[in-house]
Design a protein around this nucleic acid. Structure first.
Lengths: 172, 172
DNA sequence: GGTATATGCGTAGGCACCTACGCATGTCAA
DNA sequence: TTGACATGCGTAGGTGCCTACGCATATACC
């Protein structure tokens, strides 16, 4: 490090800045974890996108499911599921049929190849699960902390909170 | 919700899947927080990218700084800083000079317009900071939990942990 | 039956980062 | 001085989501 090193240090600076501090750290940790998982697949010689894991697991346990159902189960937007659907289809891991009760809806299911992939990935997923549990324990409750954050945001979003503070400032 | 609702429920499913469970939640929370912050700027009629906040604050406190120094201070890649630099420049918020002691390096600084923007945004940043602190308290230690996770990952990455579990499986 | 509203989901563009690669410059050792 | 290695950073492509928009279909109500 050069002599022009910031006085507060790299970690200390991310401690400042409010929402950036939380949002940025969340994102960076997420990128790190996604990257690590991706490396496990790559090392095993398997062309696999990390974002495929949750929908594939869900379909193997509970399929067939519609885009909306998958989105709801995973807590993500239907648009994300729709986009993942295309890449999963291209990889021949899923296919779909039109829902006979609703022409707007499609029921996604694993292909035979998709089911084989799920079986092939079972040891890797099991290892990733074990690693995550170990990590959670070592970090003393990451998942619980994220749930508490989630609930706090549901009670009142960062937007609502910041808006309230801004109004208070305006009035002071 | 339709009758084909997954038996384990949306929140329950993200509880499964190991690294996905942590990585995906981190990302989603990060998106939510970034989105909320973006809304505050937009509502104030200010065209501002959330990713500009940290570098601009840093430059206002400690500038001028090189791409590498900013990256180190913020804990992100130089490539990210380099990319943000272009958009910040386009918005006339920063400019740079070549470092006289190292021809490869450029020293970024806020423009006059950038300094005015920092002043203009001070109340918003202050509100976002207050909101984040409130959120952290209400969620009972988000930042502390993220730090513990960060340290746990530094001790041993998810990749290393999962690899070890895979080797254990292979031997069992 | 007709109209207004709700719902499912595809598509486009965007976000804030990442890694990989490569060029230019700086440093160090022989 | 020269060659090997390190460092700064630009560029490209990619990640896994997001929101906005819009079309088609379903539902509710009069």
């Amino acid at each position: 490090m050069s002599t022009t090193r910031t006085p507060s240090g790299p970690q200390d600076f991310t401690r400042e800045g409010g929402s950036t501090m939380i949002g940025a750290r969340l994102r960076r940790l997420s990128e790190r974890i996604d990257g690590d998982a991706g490396r496990i697949y790559a090392e095993s010689g398997i062309a696999f996108e990390q974002r495929w894991m949750a929908p594939m697991r869900l379909l193997s346990l509970h399929g067939p499911l519609s885009v909306r159902e998958i989105a709801a189960a995973l807590g993500i937007s239907h648009a994300s599921v729709s986009q993942a659907r295309l890449s999963l289809h291209k990889a021949r891991l899923i296919s779909w049929t039109t829902d006979p009760t609703d022409a707007r809806s499609r029921k996604l299911h694993l292909t035979a190849s998709g089911r084989r992939m799920v079986e092939r990935l079972a040891p890797i997923w099991s290892a990733l699960m074990a690693a995550a549990i170990e990590l959670d324990a070592e970090a003393e409750g990451t998942v619980a902390a994220l749930e508490r954050l989630d609930r706090a945001l549901q009670r009142s979003s960062l937007y609502d909170r910041a808006s309230a503070h801004l109004r208070r400032q305006t009035r002071a």
